[in-house]
Write a protein that binds this DNA or RNA. Structure first.
Ligand code: MN
Ligand code: MN
Ligand code: MN
Ligand code: MN
Lengths: 237, 237
DNA sequence: TTTTTTTGTTAGGTAAGCTTAACTTTATTA
DNA sequence: TAATAAAGTTAAGCTTACCTAACAAAAAAA
């Protein structure tokens, strides 16, 4: 049996893993920060997760999901994104409202329930934040995303998702005139205060580094995705 | 803030209260049995619930919900029954599948969510088990229900709901040919083994005392309901 | 009315999930 | 390379929600 807390840990490990392009493990402090808990707490829990063979790591080393652990994590992520889509599509929730509720709904235990929701939605590919929804068999495409601050001056990119799901941030994104699938051109960067000047739909505005680091984009001329099954991305079991 | 466990306690106190016709409080052992926990555990929690002013009772006395406690309990009960209806009506779950999942869904914190579900369902009056669904303002009708074993020989009654939500029991109910709103006539009672002979839709069968105690009915010639607002059924606050 | 049974309470203990404070190991940077 | 900073671990302690065992009060039966 997997507790709600354990599910949140495993899902976070997967998300942190996917948010880095490279094949890196996750750190204790990084995980703790992401879950808004203290490193000591994360460390305790990681011992239990290792015991249960859902993660693997050496003392003082990076943490990796095992195959079993990754399977659970993908299921939770799938539920989260399907619930967000349900709230957005069927119950007219707004972009910034869905995440908080989905954070709870993702822990409802019935497989039948989530499969029926999937069916009701017509087996959607993306959630309202532009994130890919894993299929029932656990397969999903990985975007090689960059954050907006990594895009060079003069280059164009497409916004695919966000890295901060807080209501405050999402409402700010809307205010700046940004949205999923918008094309963003980076016009200039101020060396004085690190502000980034961008153009979206003919409209020019300036955003901070902090803001830009929370906007995920794919650049126009790069390889953008690969299919990820249960076989990829886990450590040796 | 009210925890999931606390919500389950408060909801159970309300349900036990409603399942007795009379204006009686609930006992510690009775509550513990209902929640499948030990009386000592229930006793601990009741102290905390009293501290929080959600229940009121004297030591060794019967337990009553306060106005505040009853408000929370009604909200949870409303969510439970709306979710059951959603699963049954929109996702083609069967009668015996809905309860278990609703037991989890009832604890999702969003008011907007449950109101939207209510709206999607067209503000239904009854859940799939025949139980009344409290309105958003907390009002609902109370059936003066009896259990099937209390019906006298020769009398007819209408099945309105069940007192056991286990899959095993609900599937057995279906097998016996019973369902919500069926008219049941009590033909005879065996004094030897306490079996009750009933007639439903022209079909005659015998059921045990244990079975009959879990079938709620209203008798044809009694007063059957009264409206219950937040003002009724609580102890003095 | 006394005895027995049922019901409710107290005391002491466990596991999960969290905290702070002190410490160790690894990584960075001078 | 040595000093410093960052990352990770350990120890001790808290709260919630559960348990068993022993006991006290109230209700029912003899
Ligand atoms: Mn989300
Ligand atoms: Mn969650
Ligand atoms: Mn139910
Ligand atoms: Mn519940």
């Amino acid at each position: 049996m997997v507790s709600i807390t354990e599910e949140n840990y495993l899902k976070s490990l997967l998300q942190l893993r996917l948010n880095k392009g490279k094949e890196e493990g996750v750190g204790t402090n990084e995980l703790a920060e992401y879950l808004s808990i203290k490193p000591a707490t994360a460390n305790d829990m990681l011992k239990k997760l290792k015991e249960k063979q859902w993660v693997d790591y050496e003392k003082y080393g990076k943490i990796f999901l095992t195959k079993k652990g990754k399977k659970i994590a993908i299921e939770v992520l799938r539920k989260h994104r399907l619930w967000e889509t349900f709230l957005y599509e069927k119950l007219s929730f707004t972009w910034d409202e869905v995440h908080e509720v989905a954070e709870q709904l993702e822990h409802i235990q019935s497989i039948k329930l989530i499969d029926k929701i999937d069916e009701m939605l017509g087996f959607p590919e993306f959630d309202p934040h532009g994130e890919i929804i894993p299929k029932k068999n656990g397969e999903f495409k990985i975007h090689f995303k960059k954050t907006l601050d990594e895009i060079a001056i003069g280059e164009s990119c497409k916004m695919v998702s966000v890295n901060d799901n807080s209501t405050t941030f999402l409402q700010y994104v809307v205010k700046v005139g940004l949205g999923i699938n918008n094309t963003i051109k980076v016009l200039s960067k101020q060396s004085y205060d690190d502000l980034i000047e961008i153009e979206v739909n003919g409209h020019i505005s300036s955003v901070s580094q902090r803001f830009a680091k929370n906007i995920f984009v794919i650049c126009k001329n790069c390889e953008t995705s690969k299919t990820c099954s249960n076989k990829h991305f886990e450590h040796t079991d």
